[in-house]
Amino acid sequence: MDTVSPLERVLRGLAITVVILFFMFPIVWIFLMSFQTNETILRVPPSVVFEPTLTNYTALITGKLETAAGTLEIAFMRNLWNSLFLSTASVAVGLLLGVPAAYAFGRLKFRGSEDIAFTLLSFRFAPPLLVLLPLTIYFQKIGLADTYVGLIWVYQLIVLPLILWIVRGYFEDIPADIEYAYRIAGHSWFSTFRKIALPLAGPGIAAAGLLAFIFAWNNFIFALVLASADKQPVTVGALAFVTASGIQYGQVAAGIVLSIAPTFALALYAQRYLVEGLSLGAVKG
């Protein structure tokens, strides 16, 4: 129906506002907190009126955390860099391995392909802790514990199934005839993969990469167990704010703002791809 009564319009607006408030409130609250000192945050009753301060951010950036019990060294910027490096490298490796594999699973229905694909997906079902314990021991034995390579390897458990399953769907969505047409025109299968399949699955690959990046960025448990201080990402590094003299809410908030900023920016930038990518069937002649 294209005619909407004024009352309906008002109610609709109201409903949308409520939803937005519900989802945005924590982020806004955190954002506000990051400009306050611990005292103003813990003030009773709480107030939205306060004098903004940048001390939380300066503490994070300089790496010197002022607490009631004195100055504490933290490595937040290092953590941020670790997060960026680990996530990017994991996604890069994941795409390199996952996209050709997804093509194989999508196109060449070989014996057992369904089973293998499902096994890969099932990595996502098991509680990470179940895998972690034996993994830690192995890694210590072969010297991969507390190395970037080891972490990137373990991150494939998160990244690879995601990329594989999303991208596979995209490859399957490309009408097989389009690829046949290219081959019949005289091109090899590899050239067909490069010139037809890859570009047509492009939005899907971008979306899968983006999602995988966010998942990798948000990972906590693998890095907590397998990485020492100098290789920890922000998710683990934020634990440092739980100090002997209490939780540093201001710095935690600032840390959160800084750590969600990159994924947030990325998601905003790639929103179009994500929506386009997640609603399949983007390839139509």
Binding site: D177, Y180, G186, S188, K284, G285
Partner: peptide
């Protein structure tokens, strides 16, 4: 292999390469 059979084929659903213009399609 299909590419070595000296065949030309037109498909019912056209199967044009959506990311290439008509020129590139015909030139393939």
């Amino acid at each position: 292999e299909p590419e070595d059979r000296g065949i030309g084929m037109a498909f019912q659903n056209f199967a044009l390469f959506p990311h290439m213009d008509a020129m590139a399609n015909i030139a393939s």
